[in-house]
């Protein structure tokens, strides 16, 4: 089993290869929002460091969002097309769930009950979830369960759900809403992921993809679709009956 995992829903794109034993090889962009330009060279770099050719790949996984709409589309389109051409299945990974995966061991070591990934969706909104961190006595098999499902929240609404429990936050929502969190929660009841593990990364996408592949939770390329968690603005307006006539065909 050799899975290629693509993550382009955040600021920096990254690509990993993971094998059956969980060994991971990665390549990461150092340029912000360079997803479309850089995606193929990241894939090539990750494959080279894993020492395998693309024909040896068994699955293509992609982070399907939520996150940057444009970024999601680049990663998902690339994954779909590679899977289509190579004739191999896809694995869909939630960007929120992948952030939680990355934060899990840090959360446990900081004695947090909840792992709370938050992705900035602007105007006090966030894409997020609340997970409960669990670990077995040998500390080897950590797992998490869902307390509040992945969806769009107002940051205040999400904080209300946490209440006075100890929470470990991760994701770029910290950059946007850190002050609100400090304001609303009790000192000592929250901690933030360090910047080097705070943002979306293909490493955790690859780890979740491996779990899913082992469970047989795979899909055809045509079923790999984005999870925007939000309608297009014009669709919202059409539903609300407030569509303006500014929109026009430019080409």
């Amino acid at each position: 089993m050799k899975i290629l995992a693509i993550e382009t829903t955040g600021k920096y794109g990254s690509v990993s290869v993971i094998d059956e034993e969980g060994h991971v090889w990665s390549a990461e962009s150092r340029e912000e929002m360079n997803h479309l330009r850089g995606i193929i060279s990241l894939i090539d770099e990750a494959l080279a460091s894993a020492g395998i050719s693309k024909s040896e790949l068994t699955h293509i996984a992609a982070s399907i969002g939520p996150g940057s709409f444009t970024g999601i589309r680049i990663g998902v389109t690339t994954a779909r097309t590679m899977a289509q051409i190579l004739g191999i299945p896809c694995i869909a990974v939630s960007s929120i769930r992948a952030l939680a995966e990355e934060a899990l061991s840090k959360a446990i070591s900081s004695d947090a009950r909840f792992v709370v990934p938050i992705i900035n969706a602007r105007r006090h909104q966030t894409y997020g979830a609340i997970y409960e961190a669990e670990f077995t006595s040998d500390h080897e098999h950590q797992s998490i369960s869902v307390i509040s499902e992945e969806r769009q929240y107002m940051i205040e609404e999400l904080l209300d759900k946490i209440g006075s429990d100890v929470a470990f936050f991760t994701g770029d929502g910290i950059d946007a809403y850190g002050d609100i969190i400090k304001d609303k929660l009790i000192e000592g009841c929250y901690s933030f992921a360090d910047e080097d593990v705070r943002y979306q990364s293909s490493v955790s996408v690859a780890k979740i993809a491996l779990q899913k592949a082992k469970r047989g939770d795979v899909i055809g390329y045509e079923e790999l679709l984005p999870e925007y968690m939000r309608l297009a603005e014009a669709e919202q307006r059409l539903k609300a009956g407030t569509l303006s006539d500014k929109i026009k065909k430019p080409y």
């Binding site: 389109t77 097309t81 679709l225 984005p226 297009a232 669709e235 059409l238 929109i247 026009k248 065909k249």
Partner: peptide, 20 residues
């Protein structure tokens, strides 16, 4: 329905259709 092309909707549909 929108009286012209809505870029975000166009992008979403392209993704769903391109491979087919």
């Amino acid at each position: 329905a929108y009286g012209g092309v809505v870029p975000e909707i166009a992008s979403r549909r392209h993704l769903e259709r391109i491979n087919d």
